[in-house]
Design a protein around this nucleic acid. Sequence first.
DNA 1: ACAAAAGAGTACATAATCAGTACAGATTAG
DNA 2: CTAATCTGTACTGATTATGTACTCTTTTGT
Lengths: 153, 153
Amino acid sequence: MIKISKLADYSVVILSTMSTHSHDLMSASTVSELTKLPEPTVSKVMKLLSKAQIIQSTRGINGGYSLIKDPEKITMESVITAIDGPIAITACADGAEPDCSLSHSCSLRGRWDGVNAALRSALETVTLADMLKIGGAQTIKTHETKDAIHGSH
Amino acid sequence: MIKISKLADYSVVILSTMSTHSHDLMSASTVSELTKLPEPTVSKVMKLLSKAQIIQSTRGINGGYSLIKDPEKITMESVITAIDGPIAITACADGAEPDCSLSHSCSLRGRWDGVNAALRSALETVTLADMLKIGGAQTIKTHETKDAIHGSH
DNA sequence: ACAAAAGAGTACATAATCAGTACAGATTAG
DNA sequence: CTAATCTGTACTGATTATGTACTCTTTTGT
């Protein structure tokens, strides 16, 4: 099964909470109360999101996090990349495994690159705003998924 | 990280081997020798592929597996689904977790459905034939990724 | 200057999942 | 009936993710 981490799932919950309750600044503990998610976890997620510049952090007393982008401009690609790292698929695909001695199989090295690109662009078509809408109507905007796919065409 | 199991990776290696050495029938052990992959693993993969009707099995002595489709008609979607199960994303997305007591978070139940659909259609655009080509030229055919995405539009 | 509140960074134990293997059953050809 | 081959299940070890704890830094308010 293709899997996205639970943290990525939480991210959506957290971001949606932040976007609906439009306080400018929300602390991790406030978000934790609203979402019922454990605080350390919320804190971890928000830290990652801020590092990826999806949200902004303000330190010190009365500090907190705030959204810096419109939900329409936050793609799932950016969120997932922020939380789970770059979108890539096992083994050879991500460039790891230098000791790959399987001659024949690795003649196909890089074979998943196109698939990765396809997945990445697919995720770029879905924004946080889309995710919020889904609770009600089930319609997703689908710009051009095609463009990003060609390798060196 | 979005992850696809190693078995799915092996599948591509195995299928490519079967398509190039076009013997009509290949036993799991033959494929194992050619790919240098451990035999039990190969056997497991081929079993799953045959169950998904991507390849065909013939039992008994002198039996084996054979391709029943053109590489162009074997999509990565079908291969991954065969090996890793339906393309879906954690938790609520696949309909599991009936004891989901997180009130607020689950008001967003189904929020990943659109993402799943996007991923699925992206994978449908890549065929085994594309994967084989990738070793040399890096060009992927990209039919219409858009169509399958709309939910109930 | 100091204390309190909040984010940042690191590290770790547990739990879940996957990979790989092994073994026993079923099927077919000769 | 025997050898070769696929089918199905079950087990074990390793990897990975998760959730949590602890400590450090930053900033504000008094």
